[in-house]
């Protein structure tokens, strides 16, 4: 068997293992992948949309759908970065007992999360039906921000992977900083609520502006994505991938000896 075919075969098997790790011990298995985002959207919609009145103040229609457009890619990114980042420690016994490709290990974790992330997309469809959103051709743009988000997550996963072996506190620091980034990104509120003079800079510096708006505008508003912020997100994703891959390549041989 040729090397690429062997690598693909191995990658698919490891992906299956990654999926099994998430589903095999649960009675509802894959069902949790739908229940979890639905529950999170409901809680956020109730608190921010209902109690705090964010949707009323900002005049946002179909607030749960508005939230879902950000929360679903956000959850995907967060899981991918976390699980990708833990790939070396999770597979320590395998990596120290078999000459197996470290890239295959990291990417298969990302792919397993990708399958889980894709199950969030039907949740978007459910909310579109519930809120009578008429699909437009602009929906065809949705894979673009999703692909950018995946590239960003892979890059961050690569970066976190060796760092979390060398510095165990990385996982804690990550979860704290991710909470901050979530509230600093237009997930619960709209981009229009941000002061206009800072909006452009904000869109350039925060990669999630382009990603959230890239999903939200086609799904919630029936409009094409904002190409400027989406371009900035793409640049951030490329930087994250290049830096993450470089750090992974430099540090992972050292990390293997520390597992």
């Amino acid at each position: 068997m040729s090397l690429p075919r062997r690598q693909i075969d191995l990658f698919l098997r490891l992906t299956k293992t990654g999926i099994a790790r998430q589903t095999s011990q649960r009675l509802l298995g894959w069902g949790w992948w739908l229940i979890e985002p639905l529950a999170m959207i409901s809680v956020y919609a109730l608190i921010f949309g209902g109690l705090l009145g964010v949707s009323r103040v900002s005049r946002i229609d179909a607030y749960p759908l508005f939230l879902a457009c950000a929360l679903i890619p956000w959850r995907w990114f967060n899981l991918a970065a976390l699980r990708g980042g833990a790939a070396l420690t999770q597979n320590a016994s395998l990596l120290t007992s078999m000459p197996v490709s470290r890239d295959a290990i990291v990417l298969s974790e990302q792919a397993a999360v990708g399958v889980q992330g894709l199950t969030g997309l039907p949740v978007l469809a459910i909310f579109m039906v519930v809120y009578d959103c008429v699909p437009t051709w602009n929906l065809l743009f949705v894979p673009i921000p999703i692909a950018i988000m995946v590239l960003l997550a892979v890059g961050v996963g690569y970066l976190m992977c060796p760092l979390s072996v060398i510095i165990p506190d990385v996982a804690n620091a990550w979860s704290v900083s991710m909470r901050v980034v979530w509230f600093m990104s237009p997930g619960l509120y709209s981009l229009e609520q941000f002061p206009e003079r800072w909006r452009e800079l904000y869109s350039l510096l925060n990669p999630f502006v382009g990603i959230f708006e890239g999903v939200r505008r086609p799904v919630h508003d029936g409009l094409p994505p904002l190409w400027g912020p989406l371009g900035a997100s793409f640049v951030w994703a490329v930087i994250a991938f290049v830096v993450g891959r470089w750090v992974f390549k430099r540090l992972s041989p050292v990390c293997i000896r520390m597992l």
Binding site: L10, R13, A20, S93
Partner: peptide, 20 residues
């Protein structure tokens, strides 16, 4: 080495085969 406790015996046969 390489045996996943989450997978069935059958899937482990395929996994370890692929790993090797």
């Amino acid at each position: 080495a390489g045996i996943s406790h989450h997978l069935s015996g059958r899937d482990n046969i395929y996994l370890l085969g692929s790993l090797n």
